[in-house]
Nucleic acid binder design. Structure first.
Ligand SMILES: [Zn+2]
Ligand SMILES: [Zn+2]
Ligand SMILES: [Zn+2]
Ligand SMILES: [Zn+2]
Length: 220
DNA sequence: GAGTTTGAAACT
DNA sequence: CAGTTTCAAACTC
């Protein structure tokens, strides 16, 4: 049950689960809870304010994908960045559904073919994948000190949040360096762009490698 | 149970 | 529309 501390649904934060689902609070630990019959008017006003902001506020968030039997999907999609959509922080995952194209998540692992998702949900028999990855240092650039890839984790089809962060950190570092050396704005820009190029190419290299592909292009 | 992480929804 | 704030719930120890 909910344990919100707010006297009533207030601005700037989400509502307790009871209220969000349109129910009265029941057996909650809410502090000064107004989501009950005792505060009918206040409650109604809160609901009205909510609906005013978003008419769909109390609609179920899990709709059907299209017609009838299509796969259910989250009506708004999630916006996860750090959970890989494999924890209950993610509304898609919580609802036991795959993320869809309307999700704006980063580093999503909540898709049908996701090995991470599979190892999490079922207890696959033929698991393992010998991970001899411990040695993977991302060499030349500053990737080295930054969030490393976990042993059993590999990049799948999308770029993970860790990589996004690492890339940002590289660019920031490059910018600071340029600043320290009092480079012109133009040169700084160029340095950062070049760093970005190195990051991208490294990301691609690693991704290709993990898939056993070769880099065909020579123009990189 | 305390402390941390996360992301929806409100807000700017 | 993107960035920030808030805070209850999920998670971790
Ligand atoms: Zn309550
Ligand atoms: Zn998600
Ligand atoms: Zn999603
Ligand atoms: Zn996702």
């Amino acid at each position: 049950m909910s344990q919100c501390q707010s006297p009533k649904p207030g601005p700037g934060h989400r509502y307790c689960d009871c209220f969000a689902s349109g129910d009265f609070c029941n057996n909650c630990n809410c502090n000064n809870c107004c989501n009950n019959l005792r505060h009918e008017i206040e409650r109604f006003k809160a609901i009205k304010a909510c609906l005013d902001r978003n008419p769909e506020a109390f609609q179920p968030k899990i709709g059907k994908g299209k017609l009838g039997d299509a796969k259910p999907r989250h009506t708004k999609g999630c916006n996860c960045k750090r959970s890989g959509c494999l924890k209950n922080y993610c509304e898609c995952y919580e609802a036991k559904i795959m993320c869809s194209s309307i999700c704006k998540c980063v580093g999503c692992k909540n898709y049908e073919e996701s090995p991470e998702r599979k190892t999490l949900t079922n207890m696959p028999s033929y698991v393992e994948m010998a991970d001899l990855e411990g040695s993977h240092h991302l060499s030349p650039t500053k990737f080295s000190g930054l969030p490393r890839f976990r042993k059993d984790r590999r990049l799948s089809s999308c770029i993970s949040w860790e990589v996004v962060e690492a890339t940002c950190a590289c660019l920031l570092a490059q910018g600071e360096e340029a600043e320290k050396e009092h480079c012109s704005e133009c040169l700084a820009e160029q340095m950062i762009l070049e760093e970005f190029g190195r990051c991208l190419s490294q990301i691609l290299r690693i991704e290709f490698k993990s898939k056993g592909l070769k880099i065909e292009s020579s123009t990189m």
